[in-house]
Design a binder for these strands. Structure first.
Lengths: 347, 347
DNA sequence: GCCACGGGTTTTAACGTTAATAAATCGGCA
DNA sequence: TGCCGATTTATTAACGTTAAAACCCGTGGC
C-alpha cells in the first residue's frame, strides 16, 4: 500500500508526482517563499505522500555542508568518579538532534597532536560543518588549529587565553566552590580546608579561588589547602595529612567528587563520621555522589543547558549570523546531601 | 610551503598532477591490482604530496555507502550506577575508528516506536551503512524493522527470539552470577540470597539462573530471592526485607551494582558490616563500585572486546562475507573487593 | 600479415541536490 | 493591443566520486 515499496525517494520523483520541476521542489522545501502558495501546498503533499527525505550526502556534496557536528569522545576511562563528559555527550546529541544536526564522533588517542590530526582527516573526508571542543585549556592547540582552518567551532570551557573570537559555554567553578564554602560555614564550621588540583589546571585554580572568596567573606583562615592529582587515592592520602594537622579542618571543600570520595574513605578509616564530624563537599554531582552513604554534597553542572547553548552558538555561526561570538557562563547548583550536614550519626 | 594552501584536494587534481585520468587514481586508491605498479606508485606519491583524502559525501552519493555506523545513545540518565552504555559507546567508537568507520549518533526519546522512526529518518537522509543496537530484548521491534528494511546491523545483546540470522555479541550473565555465588560460597556462606530484576527482563532471568546454578552445585537453599526494579531505593528496601527474615541471608548476590549499593546502604542503616557480616556482590563494575568503602565485589564486562567484535561482524556483513552471522558470548570477570570478604571490620 | 586476446587506461554517465541563469506567465497600464 | 516589470517556474551545470563500457596497444597464434 505504501506508494514507495522500498528504496529512496528523490526530488525528481516528488517533482513528477506533483507535476513540477525538481528545482521547484527543492525551493518548496528549502525556500518556501520563492514558491507560490498553491504550488507549495501541492508539493508538500507529495513530499508527505511519498515520504521524501532529502539525501544528506548529495546535499553535502553540493553545498559543502552536511549538518554534521563533530565531537571527540574522551579517552579511555580513568578511575574518576565524574562522568560529566558522558552526560555532556548525551545532552549535546539531544540538542543537536532537536536543531536538525547529527553528531559524528571522532576518535583519537590522547594528545592534542593526535586529536588535531583526527580533526583534519575528518574535515577532509566528510564535510563536517562544525566542531565542539570540550575541556579547553590555556594555549589550546586545537583552538588555534581550528581557527587557522577557518572551521566554525564552539567549546565547552571558556577561552582561557582571553580569545574573544571563540564562542564558548562554561560553568562557573568559582561560584560553585564559593557556594559550597558558604554552605558549610553556615553549618557553623570555622576551619574550612580546600583539597584541589595542581596549579597548572585553570579549572582547579578557579575552584580554589571560590573557596578563598568564601572564606575571606566570613573572615576565616585560608591556610588549609592542598593540591593533588584528581584520583581517589590522592584525595584519601591528602585528607589524612590534613586531618593529622595540629589544628585540623572540620570541613573540606574539594575540587571534585573523586577527591571528596577519597576524603570519605579516609574518614571511614579514621572512624570519623562525614557530616557529623567533618563536613565534605565535592564537585560535578557524579552518580556516585548520590549512591554513597551518606550522600555527598556536591555541585551540579547544568549540562543540558550547556549542550543547548553550544548548539545554539554553532547554529548562529553557520547561519553566518554576524552577532558577536557568544560567551555564556552558567552557575552550578549546590546539591546538599548528608556529607555536609550534622544530621544523625547514621543515615 | 604546503602544495595546497587550503580547500579540498580532489581526484582530478591528483590525476592532473600524476598525468593520468581520474578513474585511474580512483582505481589506484580502491583497486590497486587494476593499475600497473609503476603508475600506481606515481599516483600514490601524488596522493601523499597533495594530501588527498577521498570525499566521503561524494563517495556516499555514488556508492550508497558512507562508512558511517549509527548508534543510538541511551535516554536521559537515571539514578543507575551502571555506565556500561557510556563505556560501550567509547569502546565502539574506538573500534570503529580503527576499522575506518565513523560513528554517527542517533537521538530518540524513549520508546521503540520513536527509535524506529529515528532510524528510518537517518537511513533515508544519510547513507548509513549499518546500525548497532544495544540492550536488545525479546520481540524487539527494532530488530524486525531493520531486518525488514534489509539494513545490516549487529547487536550488543543476544537475539532472545532464537533468531539465528542476527549477528550479536553478548556477555554471559549467567556465568557471571554463578561465579559470584561460588565465590561467596567459598568464603563459607551457606545462606546465599539473590536480589534481582522482575521476570520480564531476559537479562535478569539469566543472572538469576546463574545464582540458582551456583547454589544447586553446592546443594544450598534457593528460597531467598526477590525481584525488584533496578534502583538503589528498591535494593535498599528489599535488603531490609530479606534481612528481617527469620533465617536471613549471610550473602546477597545482586543483579546489578545499583541494587548492591542499595544493599550496602541498608547494611549501613542496620549497623552491619559489608563483607564481615553480610557478603554483597553486584554486576557491571560501575565506577562507583571501586569508589565506595569497602569496595564492591562485582562482575566486569569485557566491553572493549564487545566493541571490537561488533565492528568486526559489521565489517563482515558489509563485505558481503557469506560466512554465517556471528554469535559471540563472552565471560564477565569477577572483581573481588571488600564487600564480599570477611576482611577487617574497617577498610 | 591478419586477428583475437587481454592488461592497462580513458571516457561516459550517473548518484541527488541546488545556485545561477533563463524562460514563461501574469497583471497592470498606456 | 502591446509592452513592462514582477513573480513563478524550468533549464543548465556543477559538487567529487566510481561502475561500466570503450579504447588502445603490444603478444601470440595461425
Amino acid at each position: 500500500m505504501a506508494p514507495v515499496p522500498h528504496g529512496h525517494v528523490t526530488l525528481v520523483q516528488v517533482a513528477r508526482w506533483a507535476g513540477v520541476s525538481a528545482q521547484t521542489v527543492s525551493n518548496a522545501v528549502n525556500n518556501p517563499e520563492r514558491v507560490a502558495p498553491a504550488t507549495r501546498e501541492r508539493i508538500l503533499a507529495a513530499v508527505e505522500e511519498l515520504g521524501y527525505e532529502p539525501n544528506l550526502s548529495a546535499r553535502a556534496l553540493r553545498n559543502r555542508s552536511s549538518s554534521l557536528i563533530a565531537f571527540k569522545t574522551r579517552p579511555a576511562r580513568t578511575d574518576k568518579a565524574s562522568l560529566l563528559m558522558d552526560e555532556f555527550l548525551y545532552a549535546l546529541n539531544a540538542a543537536a538532534a532537536e536543531a536538525g544536526y547529527h553528531l559524528i564522533l571522532c576518535h583519537a588517542e590522547d594528545g592534542s597532536a593526535n586529536e588535531i590530526k583526527a580533526y583534519r582527516d575528518l574535515l577532509k573526508k566528510t564535510s563536517v560543518d562544525a566542531f565542539v571542543l570540550a575541556e579547553t585549556h590555556r594555549n589550546d592547540d586545537r583552538v588555534s588549529a581550528l581557527r587557522s582552518w577557518g572551521v566554525p567551532f564552539a567549546s565547552f570551557g571558556r577561552s582561557w587565553d582571553g580569545d574573544e573570537a571563540t564562542s564558548w559555554v562554561d560553568v562557573d567553578g568559582r561560584a560553585g566552590t564559593r557556594a559550597a564554602t558558604e554552605h558549610v560555614a553556615a553549618q557553623g564550621h570555622r576551619r574550612i580546608g580546600h583539597l584541589g588540583w595542581p596549579a597548572e589546571s585553570e579549572i582547579g585554580a578557579e575552584r580554589r579561588e571560590g573557596w578563598l572568596e568564601g572564606c575571606r567573606g566570613r573572615e576565616l583562615e585560608t591556610d588549609l589547602q592542598v593540591a593533588v592529582p584528581d584520583t581517589l587515592e590522592a584525595g584519601r592520602q591528602a585528607a589524612h595529612r590534613m586531618l593529622d594537622s595540629s589544628r585540623p579542618a572540620t570541613a573540606l571543600v574539594c575540587a571534585s567528587d573523586t577527591l571528596a570520595l577519597g576524603v570519605l574513605r579516609a574518614l571511614h578509616e579514621r572512624g570519623l563520621r562525614p557530616g557529623a564530624d567533618v563536613a565534605v563537599t565535592g564537585f560535578d554531582d557524579s552518580p556516585t555522589a548520590a549512591l554513597v552513604s551518606p550522600g555527598l554534597t556536591t555541585l551540579h553542572q547544568p549540562i543540558d543547558v550547556v549542550g543547548r547553548q553550544l548548539i545554539q552558538s554553532i547554529d548562529n555561526l553557520l547561519a553566518g549570523d554576524p552577532r558577536d561570538p557568544q560567551h555564556v557562563l552558567l552557575e552550578p547548583e549546590l546539591i546538599v546531601r548528608g556529607s555536609s550536614l550534622p544530621g544523625s550519626p547514621r543515615q
